[in-house]
């Protein structure tokens, strides 16, 4: 008799099965809502910060002597120091891509497509992509760690105490360096790959220099070149801005530095993919 009563109580206390399902569903939907709100708020704050930095790039006071020195140092570390490695990669890559392209063209007999392949694929897609990967791997991670360390060491607050604007002194030079380095290095990469193509075509496949240049010129369009520079600039802007934002998000603890770098690099990679897709859509339209 006692046992039966106990079971009845248990039955009364435990919620019916549909109620449990409902609560699981509601919490799942709440979770989706939370994630959506968090993501959109994060994207929104990133874009609003990006807009602030972008606008500040056009203000004269952002280019004082201190900021110019930072800019020069940044270009040196991002573009000049990496140059030997970068050119080596460009030569190796150029030889490889050109070999493949020429073999393919020869095999399918579509010589008219040579220019399109080299200009549309190598110059428009591959050069910016390889360049952005190299810069992101080397400089974005460095910027992320540098800003996070400055935050942990209270160096950012030092700058604020001395009335030094962080955007002017730290962010604008780095972002501008990202844009310039991307445009310059990507252009160099394209020029190196096309020069290797000239070599491959004339020495290995016996095409005349004029014919090769003519093929490229037929496929070259200034509009495409402008699009690819915009794309490079967008890459450069975001692969430096995102590490800055994530570096700023570090706390006062040393352990927050690797976390900031890790998150920053993941977001940098996402930004690269998003820009790549957007630029393809723009070109397609």
């Amino acid at each position: 008799m006692i046992r039966v009563t106990h079971l009845m109580i248990i039955r009364t206390l435990s919620p019916p099965f549909p109620t449990v399902c409902e609560s699981i569903m509601i919490s799942a939907i709440e979770q989706i809502g939370r994630v959506t709100l968090r993501t959109s708020s994060s994207v929104g704050s990133t874009l609003s910060f990006a807009a602030r930095v972008f606008l500040r790039m056009f203000e004269r006071r952002s280019y004082n002597s201190a900021s110019r020195m930072v800019l020069i140092n940044q270009i040196y570390f991002t573009s000049v120091q990496i140059l030997p490695l970068f050119l080596f990669v460009a030569v190796i890559f150029g030889a490889m891509v050109n070999g493949m392209v020429f073999q393919l063209i020869k095999k399918i007999g579509q010589t008219d497509y040579l220019g399109r392949l080299l200009m549309g694929f190598v110059v428009m897609e591959i050069s910016p992509f390889v360049t952005v990967l190299l810069i992101a791997l080397r400089s974005s991670s460095a910027i992320n760690a540098e800003i996070a360390v400055m935050k942990v060491n209270r160096e950012l607050s030092t700058l604020e105490i001395f009335n030094i604007d962080l955007i002017d002194y730290l962010f604008v030079p780095r972002v501008l360096n990202g844009i310039l380095s991307m445009v310059f290095l990507s252009s160099l990469f394209s020029l190196v790959v096309l020069s290797i193509g000239l070599f491959v075509s004339s020495v290995i496949f016996g095409t005349s220099v004029d014919a090769y240049i003519d093929t490229l010129l037929r496929s070259a369009s200034l509009l495409d070149m402008i699009i690819v520079w915009f794309k490079c600039a967008a890459f450069g802007f975001f692969i430096t801005l995102i590490p800055i934002i994530l570096g700023m998000n570090a706390s006062q603890e040393l352990t927050s530095i690797p976390v900031a770098v890790l998150n920053g690099m993941v977001k940098v990679f996402s930004a690269i993919i998003i820009i790549e897709v957007l630029s393809s859509i723009v070109r397609f339209i």
């Binding site: 201190a66 400055m150 160096e155 001395f162 030094i164 002017d168």
Partner: peptide, 19 residues
């Protein structure tokens, strides 16, 4: 208000006037 660790001493001091 520590010194900026990735700048040499002269640059830390000069920063104020440069900026």
């Amino acid at each position: 208000a520590p010194l900026i660790s990735n700048l040499p001493v002269w640059s830390n001091i000069a920063l104020i006037r440069q900026y």
